[in-house]
């Protein structure tokens, strides 16, 4: 098997995650889809790291994980406070910027 297949898989997962962001209204699920996209990217990094034979790709994936963790913490805090004030976790409800 050609390891390029890992890249195809990463692309597929990324696309699925992106579609999820677009179609789901529940902020938590949207967040999960974002995580899925990040993980797809990580998979691509790891696969590239193997292709090029150096560890820089893995380092980037590592940093991605750390940043994703920070992002999840803040994002979930926002969702919780949003839910507290509006009793809804729907991203469509947070649409006060329209006319």
């Amino acid at each position: 098997m050609n390891p390029v297949n890992y890249l195809y898989l990463a692309a597929l997962l990324f696309t699925i995650g992106a579609a999820g962001v677009l179609i789901r209204r529940n902020a938590i699920v949207v967040f999960m889809c974002v995580e899925l996209m990040l993980n797809a990217c990580n998979l691509a990094f790891v696969a590239f790291s193997r292709m090029h034979g150096n560890l820089d790709g893995q380092i980037i994936a590592f940093f991605t994980m750390v940043v994703a963790a920070a992002e999840v913490v803040v994002g979930l805090a926002i969702i919780v406070s949003l839910f507290r004030s509006r009793h809804s976790a729907s991203v469509d409800d947070a649409s006060l910027m329209k006319l």
Partner: peptide, 17 residues
């Protein structure tokens, strides 16, 4: 054109995507 600015984050996400 204003209707494009519907305030829904998901619509903006579609545009970005």
């Amino acid at each position: 054109l204003r209707k494009l600015q519907n305030g829904y984050a998901r619509s903006y996400a579609v545009s970005m995507f």
